[in-house]
Structure formats: C-alpha cells, structure tokens
Amino acid sequence: MTTIGDPTGVTVQDAILRADKVTMRFGGLIANREVDFVIPRGGIVSLIGPNGAGKTTFFNQLTGMLQPTSGEITFEDTSLVGRTPHEIVELGVGRTFQNIRLFGAMTVLANVMVGHHVRMKASWWGSLLRLPAVRAEEEATRQRARELLEMVGLSRRYEEDWAKNLPYGDQRRLELARALASEPKLLLLDEPTAGMNPGETAQMTELIMRLRDELDLTVLLIEHDMKVVMGISERITVLDHGELLAEGKPDEIRANPSVIEAYLGKGATTA
C-alpha cells in the first residue's frame, strides 16, 4: 500500500484510486491544474463544481479518453496514464456519459452484452466455429445481461427493442446496466440524474446506493443536483476553475466558506 499523504490532510488507508497533481492543458487553456484526488474503496464520492470547472475533463482522464498533460493517476497501484480506455475498463473502471451515449441501433440486450465484452474470452475463430465453450459463454452473458437489466429496473419486455427507442429515464438505466456489465470495481457516473424528475431522481439515487452494496462497488459521480450529492455522498470534492477547491464530508463542504462563495452560494439560491 502506498501511503501518499492525502493533500487535503485526511489520510485514506485503502484508496482504490489516486490522482496526483493531474494537469490538463488544451493549448493555452488549463482545464485541470494540479488536481489531487483520492477515492476510498467502497465509498460513494462526488465531484462537484460550477459549469466549466473541469469535472468531465477530469473524468475523461480517469477513463483514458484524454491523457493528462502531467501528473499521475493510479488505480489499485496500477498507473492509468498512457493506457487506452479499453485497458482501463479491463482493469475495472466503468463509466456512463453525461449526454447518454448508447449504441442506438442495437437492441437493449445487445447493449448490455457489449458491456460484458471485456470479461468474455471468445476469440474470433472460436466465434467463427461456434465452439461449445463460446456458445456456453454467450448464453451465460445473455443471462447475466438479463439479470443486470432486472437489477436496474428495466422490463424484459424491452430487451429486443432498439436502445434509441427507449424513454429517456430507461436509457439512463440501460447505460448504467451496460457499465455494470463490465464488472467494474469503480463506477464513474457522469450526472446520472440529469434531466430526471424528482421521482426518477430519488429512484436513481436509491438504485446507486443499492448497487454499491450488492455489487461491492466504489462510486464516483459528477452531479449538479445538490440534494442528490448531499444525500448520497460519503465524501465530496469541489473543483473550481480546474483547481481543487475543497474536499471533505458533506457537512464540511456545506460549511466551507470558499465553497459557498464559489458554488453553493449560487447553487443554494437556485436549488
């Protein structure tokens, strides 16, 4: 176990992911400046901040879709820097997208089965020859996909429909099921309740907590809805202008004057 001192003063004993001085520069624009970040294993952590604070950029660096300009990201003692997104999924990091990105013209079931891709072993020639092992794996994957659909609350009725034809809330659920199918240890959710009504939001919050417990997950989420953030998070990290502003328990964040100024002050009035 590496014991990098937590920059915010709290020492995390069992961290599943650490980011160390992560900086992302696009030309002259600095999207993330020396962000330090720790996610304790088994926790639910939120990343918040005003629009343009660099949250999604940071997410994209964790999942390999962007490479940090400098800094180091380690997941269970493995460096993620320089790895491709699919390698990172294989290590056990799954994600959803802010604007839902499903494989629209594939069936609901196929979407989830694609998610299981990294955990499958069938080779191309095995698939070509339909070897018994491949067929068994395919069947097991199908079963698992159905279980996951059930777990996120999608009716089996939909499983042969095209993903793009699902209603909005169900698309979010499907995206979640697809991410879960890769058997992640760490699940990154980019605004999972965006565009949902209060009822759906409450269901989603409850679902995330339940999934964490049932599947032994660690969850990191970006979220705008303060009710969700405060209700669900064990720790909260605040980004502002690409820099780390504060880190702590929800109560601490709520009481942090610089956060209130930068974010909650504005957020509280609109909430």
Binding site: D20, K21, Q67, T69, S70, G71, E72, V81, G82
Partner: peptide, 8 residues
C-alpha cells in the same frame, strides 16, 4: 512524476 503523453 513521469510524463507520458502518448505511447509507442
């Protein structure tokens, strides 16, 4: 900290 932008 090693800086690796792209891999060979």
């Amino acid at each position: 900290m090693p800086v690796r932008r792209s891999r060979l």
